[in-house]
């Protein structure tokens, strides 16, 4: 397997490939969104604007289609950011990879003489999906975790706190486990799907030219998986938010 270039700055270990990937997908997301809203028009929207409006409707439907647009605006913004960023991140690692093979030790990147002279072949992968990194997906999941619980505490305190002791106080540990498991599964699901996709791509690449049809098929499928995972992450986030923050009278 490839090593990742890890820059050591003082006490911090910064994964350069992750940094590049996050920056690139963030920039692509932002540029795409800016392109879509470049010539905003009320009665004659451009194609990209139409697409982005469709995404808004989609995310709006995910969260609470019955709620007016004004109240759920921040949530929709969050959902839009999530779905666009994750989708673009998922696709980022698919088309190509940048791999360098260091011939001398680069201590700042964690390449030592021992590694170079070891049995294993050393290569640095500079390009990957940011979501193929458990640390990044964990970051996203932690953001979602905080948002959900802060919103729950701020907007719906009584019912939010009560739901830990539903249906009986005995269930508190189980509810706690559920609460913790939500972000963990969120992070792991996304990471595992994308990481597995990239692992399989590198595995197919080892087949050489015979693997081309498999590669084509798998890359196509990976686009699908990337879309599904972005959708799932966003949808689950919205479900958690609406569970915690929006109180339904029929519910509990």
């Amino acid at each position: 397997m490839h090593e990742f270039p890890i820059l050591q700055v003082g006490p911090f270990n910064i994964d350069l490939s992750m940094l590049i990937a996050i920056l690139v997908s963030g920039i692509i997301t932002f540029v795409l969104a800016r392109l879509a809203v470049r010539n905003l028009s009320v009665d004659n929207p451009s194609k990209l604007q139409n697409f982005l409006e469709w995404v808004i409707e989609f995310v709006h439907n995910l969260i609470a289609s019955a709620m007016p647009l004004n109240r759920v605006k921040p949530f929709i913004s969050l959902g839009m950011s999530l779905i666009m960023f994750i989708f673009i991140s998922n696709l980022l690692g698919l088309p190509f990879g940048i791999v360098t093979e260091p011939h001398h030790a680069i201590p700042s990147l964690g390449i030592t003489e021992e590694m170079l002279h070891g049995e294993e072949h050393v290569a640095l992968a500079w390009w990957k999906s940011p979501t193929a990194d458990i640390s990044v997906t964990a970051g996203l999941a932690i953001i979602v975790f905080f948002i959900v619980h802060i919103l729950g505490l701020r907007l719906n305190r009584k019912h939010y706190l009560k739901h830990y002791f539903q249906p009986y106080p005995v269930f508190f540990p189980i509810n706690l486990i559920e609460t913790v498991s939500k972000p963990v599964t969120l992070a792991l699901r996304l990471f595992a799907n994308i990481y597995a996709g990239e692992v399989l791509i590198s595995t197919i690449l080892m087949l050489g030219w015979i693997g081309t049809p498999f590669l084509v098929a798998w890359q196509g499928f990976s686009i699908f998986v990337g879309a599904i995972q972005a959708f799932l992450f966003t949808m689950l986030t919205m479900v958690y938010i609406s569970q915690a923050a929006i109180h339904d009278e029929e519910h509990h």
């Binding site: 640390s135 990044v136 996203l140 953001i143």
Partner: peptide, 17 residues
């Protein structure tokens, strides 16, 4: 697991949002 990556991801996503 690299906690620096997590923090960077959170910050980056926050800025992006």
């Amino acid at each position: 697991w690299q906690w620096e990556s997590t923090v960077i991801a959170m910050v980056a996503f926050g800025i992006l949002y």
